[in-house]
Design a protein around this nucleic acid. Structure first.
Lengths: 337, 337
DNA sequence: CTGACAAATGCCAGCGATGGCATCTTCGCA
DNA sequence: TGCGAAGATGCCATCGCTGGCATTTGTCAG
């Protein structure tokens, strides 16, 4: 039914093996022959059969993206996915998405997944990227992988950005506007992001010589609802902050909701900053000041690095991508309407 | 390296073929044998190699999701993706995402894709779902597919929901609140969604006996920016509407932005409704009244139907899924603060 | 108990590509 | 001009599994 390599070989008058060489980019094919074969390929509209290739070559041309939370894909993951797909587009590799429930014993389930699909490489995002047992197992299985995280672990391929500094930057922005009492809503316990962003918050205060006030730091869990609850607490404070830095955009929206309910004007009565740069940050009014995480770029870079590592197995690489402060209407000098 | 079917056969003391029968769910295997083989499979942690299976069986166990707009995955697509992945999880099938630029000549490019991956089924979302040339080519190639659209074409598998009625419902909601002058911002020309939603808008007006006023209908293109522009036009109208129904949530956010800039209160001075039920509709303040499209459910249903059609090739099926009106703070009786 | 038929099981080829090795060219240099 | 090495090309086995058909086992009526 479809064209096979054999057809191409016959059409070009060469052996199957030579066509295979051209397909796989081997050097030792005479220039004119290569041209003839390439012409035949185009003419016959030949595309190699992925299954046969994978079976014979013991390569799958598959890059698997493992992520958590199969029921609600965050815009974070979405953006990473876009980057991954984009990076694959330029290569013979294809992406497979695989939601893996973090609750499961991943280290055990990964074997089945690998046996079935034999991906040539994996890309892991948090929290899997920080699952030591999983990484351990991947080493045992000798599978190349890239992690996307801000940990920047050595001896692996790890793509990230400087979350701590980004958080510090955004808080410094608030300080430069004149804010002295700045509240912070943290992320979910156990997530690296929680720690990095809170550390950045403290860094900025320290740098500005502002005393750290523990009562201005409230636990959140990255959800909108937790942002609302935390905002209530902060706004009920007897010396309420004039600005709030939420550890992500959803919680910042929660703060804006609570401000709305109380009739507080933003940024007149309260400045609000988020983190992530999700679509909502642009759509909400006023626009939300935030940090855009380079999600797409990280997805892209992860795939590129890990594919490069297939060619040069010795490679290990840590890469920090640039982030962007996005200053919008939700932050302004305190007390200004 | 990994376990093969041969190992399982040896372990269970049967032929490879019999193991294959068990794997593929053939009926004619004696019960005790089947149990023994299943035990061996579990014990050895055996998972069939997908490439070999696909090559030998001329089936790929792949469902491909074709979508447009590779640079910015909309939350619509993302939700469909979640549904598709979810539906695959229960089956031996896997999903492959394939962004296809609508600008390209799809009907031509599809051949290469099919030759390479031999997906057993395709799922198409708009605008590809309405690309007649593409569908034609798929018929020629004899590839099963499901479309997700509200067109509900006969003789195909088509999953959708009643967009027109949903739009009418939401406008009726505004009317029931007491609004008489209701503006509408349309979707992008050429999109079915534009037509259906506008028709629903007219249906609701007609049903309520409100004259259709063309000057209250302004072109948009589904983007936030176009929402802002359209809102300016409507609010500058010498008899400005008291409510605006935007054909999607992003444009509704644009309306809210323009209201914010003008110091208009929502819903006090202006009620706003969107369409889609994207995450932003919950995060924004006040919450946006909208229609939640059953995206995830549609993705799920599309896969289920098309896989069913593989078993029963004669099947064709149209399914309309329920949508949900989500009434939130952005809509209220006119003139009420 | 036997024969005939149905059900269960096994054997072997083949899916479409690549890898290893054998063979054939080409080319440089004595 | 001839020879050897390097480079180009081809042949055949093989990857792990399923399909078709042959063979074995089981069942039941006569």
């Amino acid at each position: 039914m479809a064209t096979r390599i054999e057809d191409v070989a016959a059409h070009a008058g060469v052996s199957v093996k030579t066509v295979s060489r051209v397909l796989n980019g081997y050097a030792n094919v005479r220039t004119n022959l290569r041209a003839r074969i390439e012409a035949s390929i185009r003419e016959l509209n030949y595309v190699p059969n992925a299954s046969a290739r994978s079976l014979a070559g013991n390569r799958s041309y598959l890059v698997a993206l493992l992520y958590d939370n199969p029921t609600a894909v965050s815009s974070y993951i979405m953006d990473v996915i876009v980057g991954v797909l984009q990076a694959c587009k330029e290569t013979p590799y294809n992406a497979v998405l695989h939601p893996f429930d973090a609750a499961d014993d991943l280290a055990a389930r990964i074997d089945g997944f690998v046996a079935q699909h034999r991906p040539d490489a994996l890309v892991l995002v948090p929290p899997h990227a920080n699952n030591a047992k999983l990484l351990q197992r991947l080493h045992e299985l000798d599978i190349r992988y890239a992690t996307i995280s801000s940990k920047l672990r050595e001896s692996c391929i790890d793509i990230g950005f400087d979350e701590r500094k980004a958080a510090a930057d955004i808080v410094s922005h608030l300080i430069s506007l004149g804010h002295q009492r700045i509240g912070h809503i943290t992320g979910l316990k156990g997530h690296g992001a929680r720690t990095w962003r809170r550390s950045g918050y403290r860094d900025a205060l320290r740098k500005a010589g502002i005393a750290y006030d523990e009562s201005l730091v409230v636990d959140g869990d990255f959800t909108f609802a937790s942002g609302v609850v935390a905002a209530k607490a902060l706004l009920d404070h007897d010396r309420a902050p004039t600005a709030i830095f939420a550890a992500n955009d959803d919680m910042a929206c929660g703060v804006m909701r609570e401000a709305y309910e109380r009739g507080l004007s933003i940024p007149g009565d309260l400045s609000v900053c988020g983190f992530d740069g999700t679509p909502v940050s642009q759509l909400i009014s006023p626009g939300l000041t935030t940090v855009r995480q380079p999600c797409r770029e990280m997805g892209c870079a992860a795939v590129e690095s890990v594919l490069q590592a297939i060619r040069d197995p010795a490679m290990s690489q840590q890469e920090r991508l640039p982030y962007q402060l996005q200053l919008r209407g939700s932050s302004a000098a305190p007390g200004k309407s």
